[in-house]
Amino acid sequence: MSTIRVRAVSSGDTTVVQSLIQHPMDSGFVKNKKTGKLIPPHHIEVLEFVHGGKTVFTALWGPAVSKNPYVKFAFKGAKKGDEIKVSWVDNEGQSDTLTAKIG
């Protein structure tokens, strides 16, 4: 299952996009309770939303974004049935992509 959940709803000329991503977003400041060692930072760095070949929103995230991050934004120019592509890359080079239909 994808780590990405996205809901994009268009109303008039504006599409509101909400997205939830499953990711630990480890800050690097939290200790592993069993070993007492710091859990290294592991967080999404770049999250991008593309509609019709154009990037409509880019998030640049550090370790202070909450676990399982949520983001909401809105853009113009899309209509119901269009596709929006969501992709992220983290600091360990892991990534995921999902394409969703705008409702």
Partner: peptide, 28 residues
Amino acid sequence: IPHNPYTLTAAYKIPEGTEAMVANRLKM
């Protein structure tokens, strides 16, 4: 968030056609 270990938490690029609005959840 200046009192966090690092001040910058998130930065967003807003291209033309995207509204000047963002909501997210951050650690403090």
